[in-house]
Design a protein around this nucleic acid. Structure first.
Lengths: 207, 207
DNA sequence: GAGGAAGCTAAGCGCCCGCTCACCCTCGGC
DNA sequence: GCCGAGGGTGAGCGGGCGCTTAGCTTCCTC
């Protein structure tokens, strides 16, 4: 529920806010396991094992396996929203802010691929209440990007017919990076971020 | 293994090629279940139940649950490749062919969303051999789109710096439609296809 | 109308799942 | 030096999983 952000940058591991130490280790183990195999294919024994603990230890810190996913999803969405808000609210033209938003959002999806994969693709495994909470955050994510595009259209920087549809496409493009990005592949997160920022500016008819 | 295509159009339900009738009903039931809940969260009892049969009936037609996914994935990828090939090999400029490829590929991902979702997002659940077979098809899909973009660059229609990266982004954009498209949402598959064709032409600097 | 393949079911096997419980350390406070 | 709280374990429960098996029906063939 806390949205506190200690530093202005974005390079803090978001798991640092989780205490005690054992709970954090379990959470990180769960992120890795969920990202590799998917939520349903991951066993609580696997998560506990990765954290160097017995299966029962998990239930001291979390009520259920689903609570782990919920916590991960919440922290990840908070971080994603924070990245976009930072880009949207800096000074500069809509063009600059959209490029910044896309490149930093993409860098996060590529560089923190394991986390992003869980956050973006395991939503369906959450129960109704948790899913509703996360979906509200996603609407804020959408609004943030739509805001920049709308301002660019208003200022005449952008040429966009369907603002909602284009927003959807831009976010979709960024999010899908978590599906295909390969850490051992030929591109760095920075390179993909720069490429995507250029592609998105073309999509909105900037420059 | 057969790649025969009876009609020139693209409106045949691809499951029609599956016989006998009971095997097809099971396959369709599996597609629906996998799309709704994911492969690992789907039980063989659920699949059989949707097809109106007992759990054991599944194993008369398929050796394992994984074989069902393999068959679905194979048929789906054959269909996707067929759609792109048809667009790539028609007559017309690179601009026309790319727009055609994107709009028909997107229409399929939106209109046959259940199938596309399984095909695109449950790949990890396949064993090594089946996955390798499907990945080979995906490389062909990539090559088909890359070919059109390359021809557009050669003819001077397109202005693209990174052909491979742009190809990846175009395909990623289309594929992700299967994740977010909502049948009860405000857009028809045709509308999304048209919007996306326009966005992709902008991405490659056409027109 | 006997024989046999094909298609299906009821019952259930063996396994592993999420999760619990009884118990055991470790360590700060008095 | 005893106590209680917090963090941990080994063993295991109840249940649902993927899959198998024995046996039944249907229907085609001659």
């Amino acid at each position: 529920m806390s949205t506190a952000e200690e530093t202005a940058g974005g390079e803090v591991e978001p798991w640092d806010q989780v205490t005690p130490d054992a709970a954090r280790r379990l959470l990180i183990a769960a992120v890795e396991a969920f990202a590799e195999r998917g939520y349903h294919a991951t066993t609580t024994r696997d998560i506990a094992g990765r954290a160097g603990m017995s299966p029962a230890a998990l239930y001291i810190h979390y009520k259920t396996k689903e609570e782990l996913l919920h916590r991960i999803s919440r922290i990840g969405h908070d971080k994603a929203l924070d990245i976009l808000r930072t880009a949207a609210r800096r000074e500069g033209s809509a063009t600059e802010r959209l490029a910044d938003a896309v490149s930093s959002f993409v860098r996060w999806h590529a560089g923190r691929r394991t986390t992003a994969r869980v956050v973006q693709y395991e939503l369906d495994a959450l129960g109704p209440d948790a899913r509703a909470e996360i979906l509200a955050l996603r609407r804020q994510v959408d609004a943030e990007v739509r805001g920049i595009i709308q301002e660019g259209v208003a200022s005449g920087e952008f040429d966009v017919l369907d603002v909602r549809g284009t927003t959807l496409a831009v976010l979709s493009l960024c999010i899908d990076v978590a599906r295909w990005f390969n850490v051992n592949g030929p591109r760095t997160p920075e390179e993909v971020g720069a490429l995507y920022a250029d592609l998105v500016l073309r999509m909105v008819g900037a420059g």
